[in-house]
Design a protein around this nucleic acid. Sequence first.
DNA 1: CAGAATCCTGTGAGATACTG
DNA 2: CAGTATCTCACAGGATTCTG
Lengths: 147, 147
Amino acid sequence: MEKTTDVEAGACYTVEALVEGDACRAREVLDLVGDKWSLYVVSHLGSETKRFTELKRGIDGISQRMLTVTLRALERDGILIRTVHEVMPPHVTYALTPLGVTLLAAAAPLIRWTNQNLDQMDKARADFDARAAARDATPTGPGAIGR
Amino acid sequence: MEKTTDVEAGACYTVEALVEGDACRAREVLDLVGDKWSLYVVSHLGSETKRFTELKRGIDGISQRMLTVTLRALERDGILIRTVHEVMPPHVTYALTPLGVTLLAAAAPLIRWTNQNLDQMDKARADFDARAAARDATPTGPGAIGR
DNA sequence: CAGAATCCTGTGAGATACTG
DNA sequence: CAGTATCTCACAGGATTCTG
Protein backbone atom coordinates (compact mmCIF):
# COMPACT_ATOMS: atom_id res chain seq x y z
CA MET A 1 0.00 0.00 0.00
CA GLU A 2 2.81 2.21 -0.75
CA LYS A 3 2.14 5.75 -1.79
CA THR A 4 4.50 5.37 -4.73
CA THR A 5 7.29 7.44 -3.40
CA ASP A 6 8.30 8.65 -6.79
CA VAL A 7 11.89 7.66 -6.31
CA GLU A 8 11.72 4.33 -4.58
CA ALA A 9 9.08 3.04 -6.93
CA GLY A 10 11.33 4.19 -9.69
CA ALA A 11 8.27 5.27 -11.58
CA CYS A 12 7.91 8.93 -12.21
CA TYR A 13 11.39 10.23 -12.66
CA THR A 14 13.22 7.94 -14.99
CA VAL A 15 16.72 8.88 -15.80
CA GLU A 16 15.84 9.31 -19.42
CA ALA A 17 12.87 11.55 -18.82
CA LEU A 18 15.04 13.77 -16.72
CA VAL A 19 18.02 14.01 -18.96
CA GLU A 20 16.03 15.02 -21.96
CA GLY A 21 14.78 18.39 -20.91
CA ASP A 22 15.33 19.03 -17.27
CA ALA A 23 18.91 18.24 -16.66
CA CYS A 24 20.52 21.30 -18.10
CA ARG A 25 19.07 23.59 -15.48
CA ALA A 26 21.38 22.39 -12.74
CA ARG A 27 22.61 25.94 -12.48
CA GLU A 28 19.25 27.18 -11.35
CA VAL A 29 18.97 24.49 -8.75
CA LEU A 30 22.27 25.51 -7.27
CA ASP A 31 21.45 29.18 -7.44
CA LEU A 32 18.53 28.36 -5.24
CA VAL A 33 19.80 25.92 -2.64
CA GLY A 34 23.41 25.40 -3.60
CA ASP A 35 24.75 27.80 -1.05
CA LYS A 36 25.86 26.74 2.36
CA TRP A 37 22.78 27.52 4.42
CA SER A 38 19.57 27.69 2.35
CA LEU A 39 18.81 24.04 2.69
CA TYR A 40 19.33 24.19 6.43
CA VAL A 41 17.01 27.14 6.77
CA VAL A 42 14.29 25.68 4.61
CA SER A 43 14.38 22.30 6.29
CA HIS A 44 14.56 23.74 9.78
CA LEU A 45 11.58 25.88 9.07
CA GLY A 46 9.52 23.03 7.78
CA SER A 47 5.90 23.84 8.30
CA GLU A 48 6.56 25.83 11.42
CA THR A 49 6.81 29.53 12.02
CA LYS A 50 9.99 30.55 13.73
CA ARG A 51 11.72 33.65 14.92
CA PHE A 52 15.15 34.84 13.95
CA THR A 53 16.79 33.73 17.14
CA GLU A 54 15.06 30.40 17.09
CA LEU A 55 16.52 29.73 13.68
CA LYS A 56 19.90 30.95 14.77
CA ARG A 57 19.91 28.55 17.69
CA GLY A 58 18.46 25.71 15.67
CA ILE A 59 20.95 25.89 12.83
CA ASP A 60 24.27 24.97 14.28
CA GLY A 61 27.18 27.07 13.21
CA ILE A 62 25.37 29.72 11.24
CA SER A 63 26.40 33.30 11.85
CA GLN A 64 23.99 36.17 12.30
CA ARG A 65 25.07 37.66 9.04
CA MET A 66 24.67 34.47 7.06
CA LEU A 67 21.27 33.80 8.55
CA THR A 68 20.14 37.27 7.56
CA VAL A 69 21.56 36.99 4.08
CA THR A 70 20.07 33.55 3.54
CA LEU A 71 16.67 34.57 4.83
CA ARG A 72 16.61 37.61 2.59
CA ALA A 73 17.49 35.62 -0.48
CA LEU A 74 14.83 33.02 0.26
CA GLU A 75 12.30 35.72 0.92
CA ARG A 76 13.16 37.35 -2.36
CA ASP A 77 12.70 34.04 -4.13
CA GLY A 78 9.26 33.64 -2.62
CA ILE A 79 10.31 30.61 -0.59
CA LEU A 80 9.49 32.13 2.76
CA ILE A 81 7.69 35.12 4.20
CA ARG A 82 9.05 37.48 6.76
CA THR A 83 6.52 39.02 9.11
CA VAL A 84 7.40 41.98 11.28
CA HIS A 85 5.25 42.45 14.36
CA GLU A 86 5.39 46.07 15.34
CA VAL A 87 6.23 45.76 18.98
CA MET A 88 9.12 46.41 21.22
CA PRO A 89 11.34 44.57 21.38
CA PRO A 90 11.20 43.68 17.71
CA HIS A 91 9.46 40.45 16.85
CA VAL A 92 9.98 38.95 13.42
CA THR A 93 8.77 35.58 12.27
CA TYR A 94 9.61 33.47 9.28
CA ALA A 95 7.57 30.75 7.64
CA LEU A 96 7.71 28.86 4.39
CA THR A 97 5.29 29.95 1.72
CA PRO A 98 3.26 27.25 -0.04
CA LEU A 99 5.92 27.43 -2.70
CA GLY A 100 8.57 26.91 -0.07
CA VAL A 101 6.81 23.86 1.27
CA THR A 102 6.78 22.29 -2.16
CA LEU A 103 10.45 23.10 -2.51
CA LEU A 104 11.20 21.29 0.70
CA ALA A 105 9.14 18.35 -0.48
CA ALA A 106 11.09 18.33 -3.73
CA ALA A 107 14.39 18.42 -1.91
CA ALA A 108 13.39 15.69 0.52
CA PRO A 109 14.23 12.75 -1.74
CA LEU A 110 17.75 14.02 -2.21
CA ILE A 111 18.21 14.56 1.50
CA ARG A 112 16.89 11.12 2.25
CA TRP A 113 19.08 9.59 -0.39
CA THR A 114 22.10 11.17 1.21
CA ASN A 115 21.17 9.94 4.64
CA GLN A 116 20.60 6.45 3.40
CA ASN A 117 23.76 6.21 1.35
CA LEU A 118 26.34 8.05 3.36
CA ASP A 119 27.85 4.88 4.73
CA GLN A 120 28.05 3.37 1.30
CA MET A 121 29.81 6.45 0.05
CA ASP A 122 32.22 6.34 2.96
CA LYS A 123 33.10 2.83 1.97
CA ALA A 124 33.53 3.83 -1.63
CA ARG A 125 35.85 6.62 -0.59
CA ALA A 126 37.90 4.33 1.58
CA ASP A 127 38.23 1.90 -1.30
CA PHE A 128 39.19 4.65 -3.69
CA ASP A 129 41.79 6.06 -1.33
CA ALA A 130 43.18 2.62 -0.67
CA ARG A 131 43.57 1.93 -4.36
CA ALA A 132 45.13 5.33 -4.88
CA ALA A 133 47.57 4.72 -2.06
CA ALA A 134 48.43 1.32 -3.46
CA ARG A 135 49.08 2.78 -6.85
CA ASP A 136 51.15 5.48 -5.26
CA ALA A 137 53.23 3.01 -3.29
CA THR A 138 54.04 0.92 -6.32
CA PRO A 139 55.08 3.28 -9.08
CA THR A 140 56.69 0.38 -10.91
CA GLY A 141 53.69 -1.82 -10.48
CA PRO A 142 53.16 -5.00 -8.50
CA GLY A 143 54.95 -7.82 -10.26
CA ALA A 144 56.01 -6.77 -13.70
CA ILE A 145 54.27 -3.65 -14.89
CA GLY A 146 57.57 -1.99 -15.55
CA ARG A 147 57.37 -2.73 -19.20
CA MET B 1 -3.14 30.91 11.58
CA GLU B 2 -2.28 27.41 10.69
CA LYS B 3 -0.43 26.47 7.62
CA THR B 4 -2.32 24.02 5.56
CA THR B 5 0.50 22.04 4.15
CA ASP B 6 -1.03 20.75 1.01
CA VAL B 7 1.96 18.53 0.64
CA GLU B 8 1.36 16.74 3.89
CA ALA B 9 -1.98 15.64 2.64
CA GLY B 10 -0.97 13.38 -0.15
CA ALA B 11 2.74 13.05 -0.37
CA CYS B 12 5.08 10.52 1.00
CA TYR B 13 7.62 13.04 2.09
CA THR B 14 5.83 15.08 4.66
CA VAL B 15 7.62 18.09 5.91
CA GLU B 16 7.53 16.75 9.43
CA ALA B 17 8.91 13.37 8.56
CA LEU B 18 11.79 15.09 6.89
CA VAL B 19 12.57 17.63 9.52
CA GLU B 20 12.68 15.14 12.32
CA GLY B 21 15.70 13.16 11.41
CA ASP B 22 16.84 13.94 7.93
CA ALA B 23 17.03 17.64 7.77
CA CYS B 24 20.22 18.27 9.65
CA ARG B 25 22.37 16.52 7.09
CA ALA B 26 22.07 19.33 4.58
CA ARG B 27 25.81 19.61 4.78
CA GLU B 28 26.32 16.17 3.37
CA VAL B 29 23.95 16.87 0.53
CA LEU B 30 25.94 19.91 -0.44
CA ASP B 31 29.25 18.15 -0.04
CA LEU B 32 28.00 15.78 -2.65
CA VAL B 33 26.27 17.87 -5.28
CA GLY B 34 26.57 21.40 -3.93
CA ASP B 35 29.49 22.32 -6.09
CA LYS B 36 29.18 23.94 -9.45
CA TRP B 37 29.41 20.96 -11.75
CA SER B 38 28.56 17.65 -10.09
CA LEU B 39 24.88 17.87 -10.88
CA TYR B 40 25.63 18.68 -14.49
CA VAL B 41 27.94 15.74 -14.83
CA VAL B 42 25.60 13.29 -13.17
CA SER B 43 22.59 14.40 -15.14
CA HIS B 44 24.47 14.53 -18.42
CA LEU B 45 25.71 11.04 -17.88
CA GLY B 46 22.29 9.68 -17.13
CA SER B 47 22.26 6.04 -18.01
CA GLU B 48 24.72 6.43 -20.82
CA THR B 49 28.41 5.81 -21.03
CA LYS B 50 30.39 8.77 -22.22
CA ARG B 51 33.94 9.77 -22.88
CA PHE B 52 35.80 12.68 -21.41
CA THR B 53 35.52 14.85 -24.46
CA GLU B 54 31.87 14.03 -24.94
CA LEU B 55 31.16 15.28 -21.46
CA LYS B 56 33.30 18.32 -22.01
CA ARG B 57 31.36 19.22 -25.11
CA GLY B 58 28.02 18.36 -23.58
CA ILE B 59 28.43 20.42 -20.46
CA ASP B 60 28.54 23.98 -21.56
CA GLY B 61 31.13 26.17 -19.92
CA ILE B 62 33.01 23.55 -17.95
CA SER B 63 36.77 23.69 -18.09
CA GLN B 64 38.99 20.71 -18.56
CA ARG B 65 40.30 21.06 -15.08
CA MET B 66 36.88 21.26 -13.48
CA LEU B 67 35.60 18.30 -15.42
CA THR B 68 38.55 16.24 -14.25
CA VAL B 69 38.20 17.35 -10.66
CA THR B 70 34.46 16.74 -10.63
CA LEU B 71 34.78 13.34 -12.23
CA ARG B 72 37.42 12.29 -9.73
CA ALA B 73 35.31 13.36 -6.80
CA LEU B 74 32.27 11.53 -8.10
CA GLU B 75 34.33 8.46 -8.79
CA ARG B 76 35.69 8.57 -5.28
CA ASP B 77 32.18 8.80 -3.92
CA GLY B 78 31.16 5.75 -5.88
CA ILE B 79 28.75 7.70 -8.04
CA LEU B 80 30.43 6.83 -11.30
CA ILE B 81 33.05 4.50 -12.64
CA ARG B 82 35.97 5.43 -14.78
CA THR B 83 37.14 2.85 -17.27
CA VAL B 84 40.47 3.14 -19.03
CA HIS B 85 40.80 1.27 -22.29
CA GLU B 86 44.43 0.56 -22.89
CA VAL B 87 44.79 1.79 -26.40
CA MET B 88 46.37 4.64 -28.23
CA PRO B 89 45.13 7.26 -28.28
CA PRO B 90 43.80 7.00 -24.74
CA HIS B 91 40.17 6.07 -24.43
CA VAL B 92 38.43 6.62 -21.11
CA THR B 93 34.74 6.19 -20.45
CA TYR B 94 32.54 7.25 -17.60
CA ALA B 95 29.23 5.80 -16.48
CA LEU B 96 27.04 6.11 -13.46
CA THR B 97 27.15 3.26 -11.00
CA PRO B 98 23.85 1.85 -9.77
CA LEU B 99 24.33 4.11 -6.80
CA GLY B 100 24.80 7.04 -9.11
CA VAL B 101 21.60 6.25 -10.94
CA THR B 102 19.65 6.31 -7.72
CA LEU B 103 21.30 9.60 -6.85
CA LEU B 104 20.15 11.08 -10.11
CA ALA B 105 16.67 9.75 -9.47
CA ALA B 106 16.70 11.32 -6.03
CA ALA B 107 17.84 14.65 -7.42
CA ALA B 108 15.27 14.62 -10.19
CA PRO B 109 12.35 15.97 -8.13
CA LEU B 110 14.38 18.98 -7.11
CA ILE B 111 15.49 19.64 -10.66
CA ARG B 112 11.95 19.33 -11.90
CA TRP B 113 10.68 21.58 -9.16
CA THR B 114 13.13 24.22 -10.23
CA ASN B 115 12.15 23.96 -13.85
CA GLN B 116 8.50 24.20 -13.01
CA ASN B 117 8.80 27.10 -10.62
CA LEU B 118 11.44 29.29 -12.12
CA ASP B 119 8.92 31.69 -13.56
CA GLN B 120 7.08 31.94 -10.30
CA MET B 121 10.34 32.74 -8.56
CA ASP B 122 11.17 35.35 -11.14
CA LYS B 123 7.87 36.98 -10.40
CA ALA B 124 8.50 36.80 -6.67
CA ARG B 125 11.88 38.43 -7.17
CA ALA B 126 10.44 41.21 -9.26
CA ASP B 127 7.82 41.85 -6.60
CA PHE B 128 10.41 41.83 -3.88
CA ASP B 129 12.67 44.22 -5.74
CA ALA B 130 9.76 46.51 -6.55
CA ARG B 131 8.75 46.68 -2.91
CA ALA B 132 12.32 47.26 -1.88
CA ALA B 133 12.68 50.04 -4.40
CA ALA B 134 9.42 51.59 -3.24
CA ARG B 135 10.57 51.51 0.35
CA ASP B 136 13.86 52.95 -0.70
CA ALA B 137 12.26 55.80 -2.58
CA THR B 138 10.11 56.84 0.35
CA PRO B 139 12.34 57.07 3.36
CA THR B 140 9.92 59.50 5.05
CA GLY B 141 6.86 57.44 4.38
CA PRO B 142 4.30 57.10 1.62
CA GLY B 143 2.61 60.33 0.60
CA ALA B 144 5.57 62.52 1.29
CA ILE B 145 7.64 61.65 -1.71
CA GLY B 146 9.91 64.50 -2.63
CA ARG B 147 9.37 63.86 -6.36
C1' DC C 1 42.72 12.00 -26.14
C1' DA C 2 42.62 12.66 -21.47
C1' DG C 3 44.47 14.46 -18.32
C1' DA C 4 48.36 16.80 -14.53
C1' DA C 5 50.65 20.91 -12.77
C1' DT C 6 50.68 25.83 -11.94
C1' DC C 7 49.18 30.19 -11.41
C1' DC C 8 45.69 33.56 -10.44
C1' DT C 9 41.22 35.69 -9.13
C1' DG C 10 36.29 36.55 -7.33
C1' DT C 11 33.47 35.89 -3.94
C1' DG C 12 31.18 33.12 -0.24
C1' DA C 13 31.25 33.39 4.21
C1' DG C 14 33.28 34.09 9.08
C1' DA C 15 34.43 37.52 12.84
C1' DT C 16 33.54 41.66 14.87
C1' DA C 17 31.34 45.93 16.11
C1' DC C 18 27.42 49.03 15.99
C1' DT C 19 21.99 50.19 16.19
C1' DG C 20 16.56 51.14 16.31
C1' DC D 1 15.62 41.24 19.43
C1' DA D 2 16.84 41.45 14.95
C1' DG D 3 19.27 43.10 12.38
C1' DT D 4 23.28 46.37 9.38
C1' DA D 5 28.06 47.62 8.19
C1' DT D 6 32.95 46.47 7.44
C1' DC D 7 36.96 43.87 7.15
C1' DT D 8 39.17 39.87 5.98
C1' DC D 9 40.47 35.55 4.12
C1' DA D 10 40.20 30.81 2.16
C1' DC D 11 39.16 28.43 -1.35
C1' DA D 12 36.30 27.11 -5.46
C1' DG D 13 37.08 27.45 -9.80
C1' DG D 14 39.00 29.68 -14.42
C1' DA D 15 42.99 30.20 -17.81
C1' DT D 16 47.02 28.43 -19.39
C1' DT D 17 50.68 25.30 -20.25
C1' DC D 18 52.77 20.68 -20.46
C1' DT D 19 52.56 15.38 -21.25
C1' DG D 20 52.13 9.90 -22.02
